[in-house]
């Protein structure tokens, strides 16, 4: 039985749910605790409010990623990846900075976890 109406409703619900989900992510206040992980392993856990300006170099199979911390913010400064999406993401805000080719992720730690560390 063909019932296109049902599937139009399904598509509309997915679309609206996705927009709401986006808004939730964008309006979520940024944390201070940042983790840098590669291939599922956490390399660094940093408290941005206490970090001084510096760069961190992470290597993956001969390719390098340079992460810069400046004025309590963090971003990908240089990367040996073909797409440079990680650099174009800019400073870490709502979305995690992901370098797919080099399997590197910079993200805010879970809020509840960050609070637990702070206390």
């Amino acid at each position: 039985m063909k019932n296109a109406k049902l599937w139009i409703i399904v598509a509309a619900v997915i679309f609206i749910a996705a927009i709401v989900w986006c808004v939730i992510i964008i309006t979520k206040p940024p944390g201070e605790i940042v983790t840098i992980s590669q291939d599922g392993e956490t390399l660094y856990t940093l408290d941005l409010s206490e970090e001084s300006d510096r760069t961190i170099t992470v290597e993956y199979e001969g390719r390098e990623n340079v992460i810069e911390i400046k004025d309590g913010r963090i971003h990908m400064l240089e990367a040996d990846c073909p797409d440079h999406t990680c650099i174009n993401t800019g400073w870490l805000e709502d979305l995690p900075i992901v370098c797919l080719p080099n399997k590197l992720v910079i993200e805010f730690a879970d809020e509840s976890g960050a609070d637990a560390v702070a206390r």
Partner: peptide
């Protein structure tokens, strides 16, 4: 990537994908 962090990208991909 061995991380769930990429799921944060899903809603943005879904909106543009639709």
């Amino acid at each position: 990537m061995q991380t769930a962090a990429v799921i944060t990208y899903l809603p943005f991909l879904l909106v543009s994908g639709c």
